[in-house]
Design a binder for these strands. Structure first.
Length: 464
RNA sequence: GUCCCCUUAGACUAUUGGUUAGGUCACCACCCUUUCAAGGUGGUAGGACGGGUUCGACUCCCGUAGGGGACGCCA
């Protein structure tokens, strides 16, 4: 049987960067084996699921270049779940539970107080037909719970080997809510079985759900899939990823100007290896080399440094033309709409200095503005010095007669400082400050050439 | 607290009982140099701890410590 895997996000938030990695591993596995990658939206939580989140998830997956072969939405499959619920009912595997949320909350609170683990106590598991009738007559709502069998449940995990659970640590969990909508633990099983999912690759946060799900497989006589629980991504502080780690949503990263190639490459490297010391992998290369055997067991820290390095690397691989298209939106949001020639010249200078596309604004904004903002400390240091100002004045004066290409500018400038008995840096730094407002930039003479004579002469006069 | 999982440098990883424990990011130094970046060269830094098993342990087993996850009418 050919491989079929799925990514099953719930649309209760934007696609999480960790979720994207889970999707990636599934995608790589499917493509590596020539199997199918299925996308299934798990939207049974009707109060929290939002269409906009589903759209964000689809958009993020597309941005990462992951295409899916089949698409499902659990909310559209309700009939199927109730059909299987009937089977469980007639097999006596489930029961109605009339406990209210308030009652359960109270029990949980008490357990917490006594430092005892909470587990549903099975209060309603032995209700007689008559008791049920009476409760229903009172108009009491109920959920359906699954009756856990005694014994032990073993997960044969492709990443971790055998993981075994004593069923007495499991409680009778809810299959359908009081409004009749089935819950996650029920729907996943039905869907995975009916969709012929062969391998379930998901985050290790699902390990503890797996024994419950396995019980449903057994009760319904479904064939068990293979499981591979992958380690989670954690933040620099070793806790869950948070906003401070650079964003939790894929769209945070796309928005900041990380390239999909870099993001995919980086995520693929977290918690997995590919049989060589190479760090740079295209999607195609990842597909070729991916293997669950190479997935690690321990959580991986999301290392911004490495992401930035990879992203800078991929930016440098882009052609100037590609970069023009990529960078334009980042300038546009700042109201900058450069002409093609100017943009091309700026890209040449900034390309190898960008860690992310969004850096273009900070790095090169001065090329496109009429109102320079000067670095405050640097301004004090250089432009409160009459000697420096006089020097700038002379430089500007002589510059009027110089051809404005970087080679001529450099020859002239070197001659100028030599004549004055100065070092090159004595003129370069104040000039850079006057032209860019900053102490760091691309090569000064290239900057001058790109800025053009008029602007350069004008800006050299401004500090006075 | 209970259950489950994990543990090679600051970070990601290689190693599958015999290696001078390898690579990458970060960091440091030097080169290049007008600053930054890029590039080049070199460097600092690692098997959590304690017991076993074995001729030999990073690798296997046990314990401890630390970390992560789960404990919902969320997924």
């Amino acid at each position: 049987m050919s491989v079929r895997v799925r990514f099953a996000p719930s649309p209760t938030g934007n696609l999480h960067i960790g979720g994207a990695r889970t999707a990636l591993f599934n995608y790589l596995f499917a493509r590596h084996h020539g199997g199918k990658f299925i996308l299934r939206i798990e939207d049974t939580d009707t109060t929290r699921s939002k269409k906009e989140y589903e759209e964000n998830i689809l958009q993020s997956l597309k941005w990462l270049r992951m295409d899916w072969d089949e698409f499902y939405r659990q909310s559209e499959r309700m009939g199927i779940y109730s059909e299987y619920l009937e089977k469980l009912k007639s097999a006596g595997k489930v029961y109605k539970c009339f406990c209210t949320k308030a009652e359960l909350d109270e029990k949980r609170r008490k357990c917490d107080l006594m430092k005892r683990p909470y587990k549903y106590d099975g209060k309603c598991s032995g209700l007689s037909a008559e008791e049920i009738k009476n409760l229903e007559a009172e108009g009491r709502e109920h959920v359906i719970r699954f009756r856990i069998e005694p014994g032990t449940t073993v997960i044969n995990d492709l990443v971790r080997g055998a993981i075994s659970f004593d069923n007495k640590d499991l409680d009778d969990f809810v299959l359908t809510r009081s409004d009749g909508v089935p819950t996650y633990n029920f729907c996943v099983v039905i869907d995975d079985a009916l969709m012929d999912i062969t391998h379930i690759i998901r985050g290790e946060d699902h390990i503890s759900n797996t024994p419950r799900q396995l019980q449903i497989y057994k009760a319904l006589g479904f064939k068990e899939p293979f499981f591979a629980h992958i380690p989670l991504i954690i933040g620099a502080d070793k806790a869950k990823m948070s906003k401070r780690d650079g964003g939790v949503a894929v769209t945070d990263y796309s928005g900041a100007g990380y390239l999909p190639e870099a993001t995919v490459n980086f995520l693929a490297l977290l918690g997995c290896s590919y049989g060589s010391d190479e760090q740079v992998y295209s999607l195609t290369a990842l597909i070729e080399k991916f293997s669950v055997e190479h997935i690690n067991k321990s959580p991986a820290v999301f290392d911004m440094n490495k992401l930035e390095w990879l992203n800078g690397f991929y930016i440098r691989q882009k052609t100037d033309g590609e970069l023009a298209g990529l960078l334009t939106p980042y300038l546009a949001v700042k109201g900058i709409t450069p002409d093609k020639t100017k943009l091309a010249a700026v890209i040449k200078l900034e390309k190898e200095r960008l860690k992310k596309l969004g850096d273009i604004v900070e790095n090169a904004g001065f090329f496109f503005t009429d109102h320079l903002e000067y670095d405050k400390d640097a301004y004090e240091k250089f432009f409160k010095n009459s000697g420096v100002l006089a020097l700038l004045g002379e430089y500007e004066h002589e510059l009027r007669h110089i051809a404005f290409d970087k080679a001529s500018l450099e020859v002239f400038t070197r001659g100028f400082v030599e004549k004055k008995g100065l070092k090159l840096k004595d003129i370069v730094h104040p000039v850079r400050l006057a032209l860019t407002g900053k102490l760091v930039s691309a090569g000064l003479f290239e900057v001058m050439e790109t800025l053009g004579k008029d602007v350069v002469l004008y800006r050299l006069n401004q500090p006075r």
